[in-house]
Amino acid sequence: MSEQDPFSLLGFPARPALDTDTVRERFRQLSDTLHPDRAGGDATRFAALNAACSALTDPVARLRALALLSGAGTANAKRPVPPGFADLFLQAGDLSRRLDDFTRRKTAASSALGRALLADEEMEITESAREFLDQLAAKRSELDAALSHADARWETDRTELAPQLPELADAFAYLARWVGEIQERLLCLTLIPDSAP
């Protein structure tokens, strides 16, 4: 569907890095006149604005939109796991399975004593999960640095940089997915009360 790109919709220059708060603030300001609740508002234009705001505040969607705009590939292309990510990929899978298994066992334990006996293991497994999340956060900082670097060089080297965007977007996407999966499992674990029903 041919729609305006998210950058021009919200009035930002098309570039790799944008400040999230600034984007949200612009969205809020524009909502004040374009939201369908306002006289002269327009649901279609608001929905487009809304989608643009989501895209620009998420590095994955923003980089993919920028890649598309620069003619550097589409979001659907099949690419291998980015270099340096294979190890994290395995770790994420392994940790997810361990968390699932532990959650199952803790849920099945039907007494306070039974659950308390699992406490040591729970501490260990949540610690490994947090350590892994720290690792992912470190990786994310690396990506953020790469992003600012690309952003700083964007004006002058965009033809060189554009082809690298899809891969950078993938890296952000993998990280976000793993962080989401581990956090979701940690949340499920905290939702089990210490004493059984």
């Binding site: 007494s111 306070a112 004593l113 659950r115 308390a116 006996l117 406490a119 040591d120 729970e122 501490m123 210490d194 004493s195």
Partner: peptide, 12 residues
């Protein structure tokens, strides 16, 4: 065994 359970949690 609830008291013991609580002590086990503290220990962990």
């Amino acid at each position: 065994t609830r008291d013991l359970a609580a002590r086990l949690l503290d220990q962990a």
